Amino acid sequence: MKAIPYGRQHIDQTDIDAVVSTLQADFLTQGPKVQEFENKFADYVGSKYAVAVNNATSGLHLAVLALGLKEGERVITTPITFAASANCVRYAGGEVWFADIDPDTYLLSIESTKKLINSKPKGFFKGIIPVDFAGLPVNLEAFRDLANEHDLWIIEDACHAPGGYFSDSKGVKQMCGNGNYADIGIFSFHPVKHIACGEGGMITTNSEKLYKRLSSLRTHGITKEDMAENHGGWFYEMQELGYNYRLTDIQSALGITQLTKNKAGVARRNDIANNYKQAFNGKVKFQSLPDGNLNAHHLFVVEVDDRKGLYDFLRTHHIYAQIHYIPVHTLPYYKEIGYGSTDLSKSENYYSRCISLPMYPTLSNEEQGFVIEKVLKFVNG
């Protein structure tokens, strides 16, 4: 059996042709493909606006800036995520506070978040960054109610979940990043994610005000709007300190073709997940799926007693499972600056047992059967 990674991109001839066509066109960056990708992505998730950026970390950074986060202000997120979900707060000089996870969904716990908020005076926190971990959407309706009660904004870190949805209290399917409950959504186009652009990200929102601010911050804080008539076509103004966080036309062309395949990709990921669930049911714990939700399955995570033993055993059979994630609050940087006294035992227990098995649309049934066989062999001793 050849090497089986935990995730991988799939590039076919349509992707290659799209990139080559862009390489032969007039624009390699700041051209029409970026706007086309933004429009198509906004249509896909159901948001009014989308802003393409060079990676999701940049998107998170711009999101907290656009929402007005200032030095010393406090934001809540989950410890079970990639560090960027928290780092964006630090980039703006803010303080990161962590609430614990639900031990079955592995998502930021609404109860833990509510307890943390209520333990402080009103106005102590400015926002919440829930994460659609492994592809499972957070119930943003519940978080929106909590946020409204305490005047908080919400950034949905949907990097794992393009194509996923949860059902709200009216039974309406709410696509990740559609902006109906979160102020801003963030997506990633890293190669192991659903849509591979090499690197890249997308910010979504339904607010025209936020859209304009995000667009300005993405390009140095510079604008040329309505200036040519009075000054000439060369004229521009830098109205605030922004960044060069642009995505290229080359990457956007690849993103457009990748996006067209995501619906089928999510369906295949769910087929793979269902195969795992059927094989592991009653034998190995895995992420639960609330009724009415569609997990986009960037990852398929299981919990085992001897995680390191399984990790090493699988590698001897060229199965390269991965661990997602080391809890952010235990990383040296965050330990040094402190993170409050919140009980995060559920996150720490999860980390001691979690391992992500291979999950990508081109994983064959034969390869998955081999993975299942080896996991069960180890678990059964």
Rank of each mutant, 00 (worst) to 15 (best):
132 D>N: 12
143 F>L: 08
152 L>F: 01
144 R>F: 11
123 G>T: 07
140 L>R: 01
131 V>D: 06
133 F>H: 15
155 I>P: 02
156 E>P: 04
120 K>F: 14
92 A>L: 01
126 K>G: 11
119 S>G: 03
141 E>C: 00
59 G>A: 10
132 D>E: 14
95 E>M: 07
121 P>M: 15
110 I>S: 10
162 P>V: 00
97 W>E: 13
123 G>L: 14
100 D>L: 03
139 N>F: 15
114 K>C: 06
134 A>F: 08
62 L>K: 09
110 I>K: 14
86 A>T: 04
55 N>V: 15
136 L>G: 04
71 E>Q: 08
123 G>N: 09
114 K>M: 03
150 H>A: 09
150 H>W: 11
57 T>S: 12
63 A>C: 08
114 K>I: 02
79 P>R: 05
142 A>C: 12
58 S>V: 13
144 R>P: 12
70 K>G: 05
117 I>S: 11
58 S>Q: 13
111 E>G: 02
118 N>W: 10
101 I>E: 07
71 E>H: 05
144 R>G: 05
148 N>C: 12
116 L>M: 03
99 A>H: 06
88 C>S: 01
105 T>Q: 08
148 N>H: 06
149 E>L: 12
71 E>A: 07
89 V>W: 00
115 K>R: 06
150 H>L: 13
113 T>N: 09
76 I>Q: 00
113 T>I: 13
154 I>R: 02
113 T>A: 11
102 D>A: 02
162 P>T: 03
125 F>E: 05
130 P>A: 12
73 E>Y: 13
110 I>F: 15
88 C>Q: 03
146 L>G: 06
159 C>Q: 09
94 G>K: 01
108 L>N: 01
160 H>A: 10
62 L>R: 05
83 A>G: 13
125 F>P: 06
100 D>V: 02
105 T>I: 09
133 F>G: 14
129 I>K: 05
112 S>A: 12
110 I>D: 14
80 I>N: 11
128 I>V: 03
157 D>E: 09
110 I>V: 10
78 T>Q: 01
